[in-house]
């Protein structure tokens, strides 16, 4: 495996875990998630690179409103 591929993998890893940590943090602070159970979402975010996170963000757009304190409503 050449250096370029290793660098690409490291880059992917950093991005994936940054996204995963942010979303898992959000999920931990949320009372309810789509589907009712958190475990499948944790697995999807942690194991399905990018797509799991993207799906979580699409299903829970409130993620973006976290520090938007105008009229933030975390329940759905």
């Amino acid at each position: 495996m050449d250096l370029e591929w290793i660098l690409q993998l490291v880059l992917f890893g950093i991005l994936h875990w940054m996204l995963a940590v942010l979303l898992l943090q959000d999920m931990a602070s949320r009372d309810r998630v789509l589907g009712g159970r958190k475990a499948p979402w944790v697995l999807a975010i942690a194991l399905v690179t990018f797509l799991g996170s993207l799906l979580y963000m699409l299903c829970h757009p409130q993620v973006f409103l976290e520090d938007n304190d105008d009229d933030n409503d975390r329940s759905h």
Binding site: L15, M18, L19, L22, V63, F64, L65, E66, D67, N68
Partner: peptide, 11 residues
């Protein structure tokens, strides 16, 4: 939206 959303959108 603030800082966290910026990080998400950048990724």
């Amino acid at each position: 939206f603030g800082t966290r959303a910026t990080v998400l959108v950048t990724i």
